[in-house]
Nucleic acid binder design. Structure first.
Lengths: 110, 110
DNA sequence: TGTCAATATAGGCGTATGTCGAAACAGGCG
DNA sequence: CGCCTGTTTCGACATACGCCTATATTGACA
């Protein structure tokens, strides 16, 4: 994921960049994934393992695993296996890039 | 759309708020809508009328109208009819709220 | 090495989404 | 008033998505 940081309101976005931005936002377009990201990001130490995440929902393990993969493929989180458990953490830079895309240069109101 | 401004990484997000945030991001999960929002936001004067927007895509009028409605229902843009044409503009506050949700409090990296 | 726990993948089912063509609505103008 | 342009709504179809169950993979441990 290689999103340019220029805000949407600065200039008409390139077609390719629009696709990348849309892909990233699509990863955040599901309530379960938003909650997963928040749970991981706010977890003590910034890490959480899958079992903890599964326990927070009324969904099956494979479903949570699927959502985690979507977030991972979007570059929003990363994971590492440590023995039996797999730990996940957020990629702050990815969130900040998306945040910058949404900033408004404070000049677009009539 | 009444999104709370607390960042995702500050604390585990409420289920209802997660749904609202996800709905807003879903509106941005399509490349056409991202480009539409950027075109409107970056248009001189901050406004654009539908005909201009349709001309920027290889899509039919009804399709653009549908995407505009999704953005409007998400509270990201507003519109007004002036004579023959309908003008659209962005709602900066809505974008800023989403931007704040994605900010990272700079304490979640191990 | 065999077995068990933790996690990921594969496949299938029901619903939602993007797109189109056709038709309806709205306002200006002859 | 009736037409013409601009815009939205309607109905339909192909595709994508979220969820599940079943199966595979990975590593720990006896």
């Amino acid at each position: 994921m290689d999103i340019c940081c220029s805000p949407l309101a600065a200039a008409p976005i390139d077609v390719g960049q629009a696709a990348e931005v849309a892909t990233a936002f699509k990863a955040l377009s599901d309530p379960v994934r938003v909650r997963l990201l928040s749970l991981i990001a706010s977890h003590p130490g910034g890490e959480a393992h899958v079992n903890t995440l599964i326990a927070a929902f009324d969904l099956t393990g494979p479903t949570i695993s699927h959502h985690l993969r979507v977030l991972r493929q979007a570059g929003l989180i990363e994971c590492e296996r440590r023995g039996t458990w797999v730990f996940y953490w957020v990629v702050p830079a990815a969130l900040e890039r998306l945040s910058e895309v949404l900033t408004v240069p404070a000049k677009t109101a009539p």
